[in-house]
Design a binder for these strands. Structure first.
Lengths: 217, 217
DNA sequence: TCTGCCATGTAAGCCGTTACATGATTTT
DNA sequence: AAAATCATGTAACGGCTTACATGGCAGA
């Protein structure tokens, strides 16, 4: 999952470890607290060894876009061609972990880089998973309610509520996907840039996002 | 956390590992899938070595309460006096992990065995934690919304929604605690079986009126 | 009889953490 | 000059999972 997330972020822009961690925290902030360096750096090493990412010297001259806080780079990593392939594979491949809270979150975050078929598959898988949890909770609340104390019951009720809500959310997303819409009750027209649609053949990232991506003012 | 959960369940009734796992799954089902045996049995071993739990022969005669499916026990564990102390300690002690999803869930599950002061402390700590996450998400949605794609935004919105909802839930619980109420519409006083511990200063579950816990239609 | 669930355990390994060690650059 | 923050890394360890090994008991 971390591997997927790193490749995904580096596909947006070259970055060094420290920045990567911050991006990871904001983009996947819902799911996990920031990843620790003790995980991040060894993973970067591994990805480099595998050839999926490479170091990019950041000379003063190559500093075209004033991208980050630091103009003199430490070790800036960028994704390689093989890395892009790997990323695409990981995005499409689905296993049981894909439907975990974390796995689903990471995949979802990069949905704009996937084709609609994959998106639907993942959304439906996630829905199934959450529905199972929901059924489990319902059963407990229906069958074993009398041997549980008030607090435990309250917790289960709250959990059940969260499940029901997520299922409804997923249902909405699935409907939108089927009708070819991007999510978001967009504050300004149908999403900022481009609908991520256009799956068909290439499955590649449509133009989208002409923004320079900066981090702090 | 697992230690706390095991001691808590064994305080309700002696059980063998297999049953324990099932109980764990239903009582804490919201949080984690079932714990694996690879974790459970070594933990039981450790708890036994520490003296918190002991093996209890399950003769036909001691089978007073027909508790679960199996009447002929394999290795039945029961909590010791030291174990009860340990449990009380763990329940009252709060660290950062106490406010994690899992940590909070486990503590909450055993709230009927805690005094009100501890309950309030934990509920408020959890609220602070969730509020922090919420603020983080709000900030991202306010500040960085334009550099995130529609899917990522949608995920953040959904996360924010969940946070806001949980804060409201916690607020309600806190209010109830302060006014001396137990949650939920309990069907008959505090729990079916035993009336919880009686922890020193008799701050135990007060009468409480049946109150409708809104939240859903 | 044999399939399937109950039941207990061990071994290897993954994924991640904390704590530590180090140093450069910016801000006060 | 000191403090804060940026930045990179290593070592040790922790919790939990999977896969494996084993066996009793119930019902088809």
């Amino acid at each position: 999952m971390l591997e997927l997330a790193i490749l995904g972020l580096l596909q947006e822009a070259p970055m060094h470890g420290y920045e990567l961690r911050k991006e990871l925290a904001t983009k996947l902030g819902t799911l996990r607290a920031a990843i620790s360096y003790g995980t991040l750096y060894p993973t970067l090493k591994r990805l480099k060894l595998a050839g999926w990412i490479g170091e990019a010297e950041m000379t003063e001259t190559s500093d075209i876009i004033p991208p980050m806080t630091s103009k003199r780079g430490r070790v800036v990593y960028k994704i390689t061609a093989e890395g892009k392939e790997r990323f695409a594979d990981l995005l499409t491949q689905t296993g049981p972990e894909t439907y975990d809270d974390t796995g689903f979150g990471v995949h979802f975050t990069f949905f704009s880089r996937t084709d609609r078929a994959t998106r639907l598959r993942i959304l439906e898988g996630r829905r199934r998973r959450v529905e199972e949890r929901r059924e489990g909770l319902r059963e407990v609340l229906a069958r074993a309610a009398d041997r549980l104390d008030a607090y435990t019951l309250e917790l289960q009720r709250h959990g059940l509520d969260a499940c029901e809500r997520e299922v409804r959310w997923l249902e909405e997303l699935i409907t939108n996907e089927r009708s070819g819409q991007t999510p978001g009750r967009s504050r300004f027209g149908p999403a900022g840039a481009q609908p991520a649609a256009t799956p068909a053949a290439g499955s590649e990232t449509p133009p989208e996002q002409p923004r320079p991506h900066l981090d702090r003012p």
